[in-house]
Design a protein around this nucleic acid. Structure first.
Lengths: 250, 250
DNA sequence: GGTTGACCTTGACGCCGCGTCAGGGTTGCA
DNA sequence: TGCAACCCTGACGCGGCGTCAAGGTCAACC
């Protein structure tokens, strides 16, 4: 007659494990002695070892009982099944490892190197870290909402950064970060930016990410908020006018 | 401003996931609108996407927050660490697959083919299934308690099964399974078995498994219990006599 | 204005295989 | 007699959410 710890030692498991198997009905509860201690016979040791043989091969506890009483055909099918499940998990983990290997540093956390290069150009031109962080965020959002549009946008961005006017406007915006929204100098800036927008008119796809990016920038500074709003208004008027012109043409 | 389901859709996760991240403090709780609904800005979308980028690479949630604010050095170290952890898990699962592939059928569940061969020999000689099952169990126990002793025992067993007397005794025991323990025919059988034991005297190692096996067999039938007890007594007497002889020799 | 269906809220249990307290009683040995 | 080493039940914890339950809200349509 064995105590629970002797039984556990026999099968190479913990006492808690044995009790757990009782709880889930995998191993039947044995008789108790006068003081309520469990007393096991050899049958229990055999059962427990058979259970562990399966458990140590990655068979879920819930399936072990059925397996112990299965006929060879069912047994083989169940084994195949469980093996496939294990293979699936391995694939999943391997996928994780692939992705993790591509996470270089915190900065490029979510971004391919081309985008990091764009951000580095901005920093090199003296654009503020705050603004560059907002740019980074806009790329993150674009990638999440419209990944296919990213390569084209990168090309456009790099092209526009070849123009001095683009850089001048970036730096001017940085200057304006702590201006009062009613500052008259903002009017000039907005005019210039609107002109830039007209010159770089592109089909404004990815509206969802555009909205999010705009609101994010607007939150950063009151003056910027005014810029965003005014530019949006003007663009809106242009497109309405455009529609009217189209209608008149019909 | 986004609702929770819009935010979730933006990042490609479930609403429950977003709420879970609030619970564990990974994503800050946003402002509520008049009816208590959560309202998110673009910042939240960016944060959530960054979180998912790490989570989708297998980074445990508990480590993501630190990683998002880590300097490149720490970041790289943490990544290496997590990757090692993933590799460990993969190895574990691969080990499971190896073991699972070796579980042929229910019968050989725990046993190498050599032992299965021994059991098949017994069945071939006409030994009862009950007795063969008990034999199987004794191998299971031996493997668990003293795996190194298994190969030698297999050789001994096969050798003894080459002798007709061994087989005769197996079959005789099967006959005795439903005899009354006081049946006089048992005396002859016990004499024969004792003689067999003396002839096959081996160093009785693996006592732990021997005890368990004996008790298991004894539980199966009252007549067998008597056989076990009597044989144990005689062996005990022999070894005491042996000790006395040794002492006398000193 | 009533109904429907799609959204939102908090709270709580379930999964898997035990590990690990907490708070007690029992046994065996010096 | 005291102490260590066992035994008992009961319950929480872990990871990352899924999935009810039982409500309140919003937008649209009749």
């Amino acid at each position: 007659m064995l105590t629970i710890s002797q039984l556990a030692a026999t099968a190479g498991v913990s006492v808690r494990t044995v009790r757990h198997y009782h709880q889930v009905g995998l191993l039947p509860e044995p008789e108790r002695d006068a003081s309520g201690y469990r007393r096991y016979g050899a049958q229990a040791a055999v059962d427990l070892i058979r259970i562990r043989t399966l458990a140590d091969a990655g068979v879920p506890l819930a399936r072990i009982d059925a397996l112990l009483h299965a006929r060879p055909t069912e047994f083989a099918r169940a084994i195949t099944d469980i093996d496939a499940e294990l293979a699936r998990k391995i694939d999943q983990l391997a996928e994780y490892r692939k992705r993790i290997a591509q996470l270089d540093s915190g900065e490029s956390l979510v971004l391919p190197t081309e985008i990091v290069a764009v951000l580095d150009r901005l920093l090199g031109f003296g654009v503020s870290e705050l603004r560059v962080r907002l740019e980074r965020d806009s790329w993150i959002l674009l990638r999440a909402l419209d990944p296919d549009a990213v390569p084209a946008r990168i090309r456009e961005k790099n092209a526009s950064l070849d123009e001095p006017e683009t850089i001048r406007l970036f730096l001017a915006c940085d200057q304006a970060v702590d201006w009062d929204p009613r500052d008259p100098r903002l009017d000039r800036l907005i005019d210039d930016m609107d002109a830039w927008e007209i010159a770089h008119e592109r089909d404004s796809k990815g509206q969802a990410s555009l909205k999010l990016v705009s609101s994010r920038i607007a939150e950063a500074a009151p003056a910027w908020q005014r810029i965003i709003i005014e530019l949006a208004n003007r663009a809106e008027n242009r497109s309405r006018t455009g529609v009217r012109q189209v209608l008149r043409g019909l």
